[in-house]
């Protein structure tokens, strides 16, 4: 069972604002999914290598040759708040 505090902590890590109702619902839904997931805790997995990749590839490298960058107008075209040739954001303050 996942606690309300944990829901809030995880939501903060993921920068999601949850309503009261969502916090309650999320606690229940996550708990039911986690109950299912926790069945893998019963497996004997000592000495088993983790797979982060199914591919047999190594050392895929790109030559250090410049490619054209985007024109600045295009780079900023999708910005919700372009400002002074850049992407406007509220100043960080305590966030970080």
């Amino acid at each position: 069972m996942i606690e309300r505090d944990q829901v809030l902590h995880v939501a903060r890590l993921g920068r999601l604002k949850l309503s009261e109702e969502e916090v309650e619902r999320m606690a229940l839904e996550l708990s039911s999914v986690l109950d299912h997931i926790e069945k893998i805790g019963e497996l004997q997995l000592d000495g088993v290598e983790p797979t982060s990749h199914v591919l047999p590839l190594e050392n895929v490298l790109r030559d250090d040759v410049p490619r054209a960058s985007l024109p600045r107008d295009r780079a900023l075209a999708e910005a919700p708040e372009p400002a002074g040739g850049g992407f406007g954001v509220p100043s960080p303050g305590g966030e970080g």
Binding site: E81, A83, G84, G86, F87, G88, V89, P90, S91
Partner: peptide, 18 residues
Amino acid sequence: LVHAGASGRIHGAAGSVV
């Protein structure tokens, strides 16, 4: 992150520019 100061205020809030 460039702190824009008063001249770079965005929607009234003190803003920065990336």
